[in-house]
Design a binder for these strands. Structure first.
Lengths: 340, 340
DNA sequence: CTGAAAGCGCTAACAG
DNA sequence: CTGTTAGCGCTTTCAG
């Protein structure tokens, strides 16, 4: 717990100027190997590390792209992190992961961070943004929104966007169930007031039912409980339990894999078996779904492609291409063992 | 994508000095309400956000404590995040979560971050540190290590430490199995070269067996595969499968709950049933374990207490108490349904 | 109550 | 090759 070392201290100790120290630690070619070695030895000896605030402040630009995520609990997003990091590295950029807490405003965090770190670009992952181009107007660097939801009736915003069509994919899931002969299909949807991802997926559910001439029964619609974190196993368990007590059905559509895993438990406790008594389909395609018993049939989001093309879009934008693009990727039906 | 606004721009636009703007945005009392309002209106109008690098550089101190974690994949650590954040807020500190990637050195990241952000304190969560007090010598602020492992034979380091006794708790798990009458008990351990958490837990396993006069059979020891991320469901699945093919046993001890979940799958695929044919016990006590079928019996780490006392220790240290303490918490056996 | 000016620690001209 | 110095954007004395 010694006092804070600065570049000056190192310079003084070595009997050189601060710029020489700076050159040494930054691999600047304009320094003699001897001096460099001498300086670096001292740096190491005292474990000197430069102050990044000073560095960031001075540097006109960095080589860093930040990935900003709100809330860590989403396991689907977590599984994309590595991909982003690698893809960015591959493109020669440093990667900065920045978590913003649930209460904070993502847009403002992004703007702050961009200034602070002189970012080259920003990728925002997940969450919901009503007016991206407006909220992010002060974001002075290129950015792309990856699976950022906007509310149902907002026209596609004028920004770089990578996403899936939640309503359509949801439709696909339910259609699949219908094609399998199911008529009474329950859903574990998002929160009742969710007009973003949850709302869209619920919309797809209703559309599929209507398309097949099956009347919508409100008893079959379960909304995630407000008193339990969203999209969690626990919430899925609680809602499935309610559903099971309230009414009958032969298939259950869970708008996220994690909630489906909770539903498994409720179903098992009800003495029912999957898929013999009840079919279950999930959404997301997380790895865990391979290991549930039975393995979870689900709608798999093409996360690798989404990661890759998010980065590609950002690279384009960084390199001066200022036409924003909206890329919607098709998800795929992953048939495993939970539907019959 | 306008140009970067600085405090000067705002000052100029308002026709005031920069210090006045600074006072306005920092709620400094020494400013007339009128001017303040006028300035803030302009700030809002242009969506001005100050540059944190400049701010951090200038500020002599912050009010921030950082939580540093290496690698996000550990679901057990994830479940502690919220607790840390709340506990720190409750103590009046800002919370900064900082993720360092697998390749980087946690100690250096901590030192850098402390300088950059003028941190008040640091909590390091998880990972492994051979010589904490040495590696962190340049960390100029108080810190505590929470569940940071050190290798088997290192004496307890002279730092603030909150942890469980991995070997002892592991012993407890295996002892429980033995008391239930099991003699052939397999283990899914960490990587073969893991001398930290994995090694300790393996040690506890061996000790329990020896204590009961059961000879150790290397065939019963499964090491996590090197080609699959550690402590994952996938790894648990792969190792359990190998174990099942290689030998017979009536109980399986998995040193992490996530790997146990993978083992469930392998066991199911082998046509065996839990706990009738095979008992399984995990380690960690993650929420998911409640929802597996059958619910997972496990050793539950007292994470809430560990979080709270990590923060307490840090508060003490920040307030001048410079006696480092090592707190080892007892874990508890959580009997659910997977052992018989 | 307000503005001018110093300086946080660093990098990058620039001059030697 | 090396040292001196300006200045990144901000907060904070210090005068007014």
């Amino acid at each position: 717990m010694s006092d804070q070392l600065t570049i000056k201290d190192i310079a003084k100790y070595c009997g050189v100027g601060v710029s020489t120290v700076s050159r040494a630690i930054n691999d600047d070619p304009g320094i003699s190997p001897k001096t460099k070695e001498r300086v670096l030895k001292v740096v190491k000896k005292f474990h000197y590390v430069p102050n990044n605030s000073a560095r960031n402040l001075k540097m006109q630009e960095s080589n860093t792209v930040a990935l900003i995520v709100r809330g860590i609990d989403n396991i689907f997003f977590q599984s994309m992190l590595d991909g982003f990091q690698n893809e960015l590295y591959r493109n020669g950029y440093d990667f900065l992961f920045h978590l913003v807490d649930e209460k904070s405003n993502v847009a403002i965090s992004a703007i702050e961070l961009a200034k602070e770190k002189r970012l080259k670009g920003v990728i925002i992952l997940g969450g919901m943004m009503e007016n991206p181009s407006e909220d992010l107007e002060q974001l002075a660097v290129p950015y792309v929104l990856c699976t950022v939801a906007h509310s149902m009736y907002t026209p596609t915003p004028n920004v770089n966007l990578v996403a899936i069509d939640d309503a359509m994919e949801s439709f696909k899931a339910v259609k699949y169930l219908i094609d399998k002969g199911h008529k009474r299909i329950a859903i574990i949807s998002g929160r009742e007031k969710d007009y973003a991802v949850g709302g869209q997926r619920l919309r797809g559910y209703k559309k599929a039912l209507e398309g097949a001439g099956i009347p919508i029964d409100d008893d079959l619609i379960g909304y995630m409980r407000e008193d339990i974190p969203e999209f969690t196993t626990e919430n899925g368990y609680a809602v499935a339990k309610e559903l099971l007590q309230r009414t009958d059905f032969t298939a259950l559509y869970c708008i996220s894999d994690m909630t489906a895993i909770g539903a498994y438990k409720a179903i098992s406790e009800a003495g029912l078996s999957i898929p013999d008594d009840l079919s279950v389909i999930g959404f997301d395609g997380i790895d865990l779904g391979r290991f549930t018993i039975p393995a979870l049939t689900t709608i798999k989001q093409p996360k690798d492609e989404m990661v890759k093309s998010s980065v590609d879009l950002l690279m384009k934008a960084i390199n001066g291409d200022d036409t924003p693009r909206q890329l919607f990727y098709p998800a795929s039906l992953l048939e495993r063992e939970s539907v019959r």
